[in-house]
């Protein structure tokens, strides 16, 4: 049986205790909201896209260490990156979480960095939803920003 240390890697607890890019942004920033209907976790993603670049991102809401650290790492990973790269990262992260959305194999040219630490979540299937919540919410925010 996988142990707690497989799930709660030090870097995850660090992002949980000191979340990056926490807060909110005023319009014209776009906002999207994600809910985990099983546990009640809520994530808000505030996003400013300028000239095809994720210019700024803030994370609101509340949730468990996995959902919060995943959101924190995600915000750090996509901030300042081109939108296409952010979308590629969403695809790649969900692939890492064993979520197969079809389509091409993910582009692995961008390093996952801290996000690699979340790999252990796959051994705890119940928690995959926690890890993926913020990424689905980001995808929605990117869609809104593209409208």
């Amino acid at each position: 049986m996988p142990g707690l240390e497989d799930l709660y890697r030090e870097i995850i607890l660090d992002h949980y205790k000191s979340p990056r890019n926490r807060g909110s942004l005023e319009p014209p920033a776009v906002r999207s909201e994600g809910h985990n209907p099983l546990c009640g976790d809520e994530i808000e993603v505030f996003l400013i896209v300028k000239d095809g670049i994720v210019d700024d991102i803030k994370i609101g809401g509340q949730g468990c260490s996995i959902s919060q650290s995943s959101a924190s790492m995600m915000s750090a990973a996509v901030k300042g990156k081109p939108v296409e790269q952010a979308r590629a990262l969403i695809h790649r992260f969900k692939h890492m979480m064993s979520i197969d959305e079809g389509g091409e194999e993910p582009d692995t040219s961008t390093p996952l960095g801290d996000l690699e630490a979340l790999q252990g979540v796959v051994k705890f299937p119940v928690r995959i939803k926690c890890a993926v919540l913020s990424w689905n919410t980001l995808a929605e925010a990117l869609d809104i920003a593209a409208e």
Binding site: G3, L4, Y8, D41, C64, S65, R127, C130
Partner: peptide
């Protein structure tokens, strides 16, 4: 968070 507590309890 309750989810994290239940994870440790589950061990």
């Amino acid at each position: 968070h309750p989810h994290d507590i239940s994870q440790v309890l589950d061990q």
